[in-house]
Write a protein that binds this DNA or RNA. Structure first.
Length: 397
RNA sequence: GUGGCCGUAGCUCAGCUGGUAGAGCCCCGGGUUGUGGUCCCGGCUGUCGCGGGUUCGAGUCCCGUCGGCCACCCCA
């Protein structure tokens, strides 16, 4: 009998921890620096929370959720996405009564059922930042700049930022009313896949044009774009976001066809795309979600935030040839030779540890040489040979 | 979810046209060397992913299954 980690999951071994901790520490440091506070939500939520906000027609909801029924016949779903649970917590605990905006962050596991690949897991980790309770475009720019800074700090230099505005309740419906008929009119010029996308979500039909057949690309380029259809408020909001990003020196390109997979997004949407190693190059994705809280039954509460895959960031780091931070060695290692008083050694170790000294000895019955090797592996700053006559009393911190 | 490639010791891999499994690294021991480094010697570990089938005989062929990877879908 042999057990393996379930498909699409992975262990994070001790040898990998230094890299993980490095990224996590930089992330936390930045979040605190920018005034974001940590929040944690449950691994599972009411299924409807995700279904309502992500959209009943979205890929996440239709084919990627880990949904199960508990013994009380409640339909629950493993955290499929970070934002909805946080907004739920915001509403549930009345965070709208605290000073706005509420600037929150977390890192946690996310669950999506799908075919695993490198950088694509059924259980993966995400960094997440949300600013809830303000529609100030400065916040859009702030969270984007925060992640941009994180990339710089950990050493990822090869990436680009794609930016778009997909409008709001004011202008998007009108745009869709123009796009939908247009797509139907040109249906005969489109390929099967695009027609299916158009039927499910018209915006989606324009997504990732570069991957479509050349002839189809030609046609789609003539389609009305959301950018040309934005209402004044959205247009101005987007212009300000870009102005702030320019002021921050955050390079970005406007991609008019960038759509995101979750229905709750409004106005600003963006993706950080990393080095083209595999196809799993999206490092982070986010956007504004001014209608999300209302969708959950709360008052109108604008918000903006992003999720960023940690495994993918680590992959990009490796690709960039960034070395993991060196582990600091222990302070002292006791080598027990023949006849050594091991009890006294253990007592001394406990005493040193109490004083904050990292002390170790051998627990594997190694030879003296083997113990010396082990001490070296642990990076011991001091190595003490203990023989029968050794007096440990003069070993101090 | 669709299509394709792959699956041999903890790790990286070898194993020709089917004949009953190997190397390096790692780990442990010994020696050398004034040290944890080097070099030398020795040792440990595998139901050849799993289950069936073909065959006198399968790691090597066939089917299924599980898992990894690649493309698509979509995304983090």
């Amino acid at each position: 009998m042999k057990f393996e980690a379930p498909r699409g999951t992975h262990d994070i071994l001790p040898s990998e921890q230094p890299r993980w901790r490095h990224v996590l520490r930089e992330f936390e440091r930045l979040c605190e620096l920018y005034g974001y506070r940590r929040i944690d939500t449950p691994v599972f939520e009411d299924t409807e929370l995700f279904a309502r906000t992500s959209g009943h027609g979205s890929d996440v909801v239709t084919k990627e959720m880990y949904t199960f029924e508990d013994r009380g016949e409640r339909s629950l779903t493993l955290r499929a996405e970070a934002t909805a649970p946080i907004v739920r917590a915001y509403l549930e605990h009345g965070l709208h009564r605290e000073p706005q905006p509420q600037k929150l962050y977390t890192y946690e596991t996310i669950y999506r059922y799908g075919r695993p690949q490198k950088g694509r897991y059924r259980e993966h980790w995400q960094l997440d930042v949300e600013a809830i309770g303000s529609e100030d475009p400065a916040l859009d720019a702030e969270v984007i700049q925060l992640y941009d800074t994180l990339l710089a700090r950990v050493g990822v230099t090869e990436y680009r930022l794609e930016l778009n505005s997909i409008g709001d309740a004011e202008c998007r419906p009108a745009y869709l009313e123009r796009l939908q008929p247009w797509l139907e009119e040109h249906a005969s010029d489109l390929d099967e896949a695009t027609r299916e996308q158009a039927a499910r979500n018209p915006l989606r039909a324009l997504d990732n044009i570069a991957a479509k057949p050349p002839a189809v690309q030609e046609v789609l380029r003539q389609a009305p774009t959301i950018g040309d259809s934005l209402c004044d408020a959205c247009r101005e909001h987007f212009a300000e976001v870009r102005r702030y990003l320019d002021a921050y020196g955050v390079r970005h390109e406007v991609v008019p066809t960038l759509v995101r997979g979750l229905d709750y997004y409004t106005r600003t949407t963006w993706e950080f795309v990393g080095p083209e190693g595999g196809s799993q190059s999206t490092l982070s994705g986010g956007g504004r979600y001014d209608g999300l809280a209302e969708e959950l039954g709360g008052a109108h509460t604008p918000g903006v935030g992003f999720g960023a895959g940690i495994e993918r960031l680590l992959l990009a780091l490796e690709e960039a040839g960034v070395e993991p931070p060196a582990q600091e060695g222990i302070d002292v290692f006791f080598i027990c030779e023949e006849g050594a008083d091991r009890t006294a050694v253990l007592a001394k170790i406990a005493e040193l540890r109490a004083a904050g000294v990292r002390a170790e000895t051998d627990y594997a019955g190694r030879s003296a040489k083997g113990q010396r090797t082990q001490a070296g592996r642990l990076g011991a700053k001091r190595v003490i040979d203990v023989r029968s006559e050794t007096d440990l009393s003069d070993v101090t911190a």
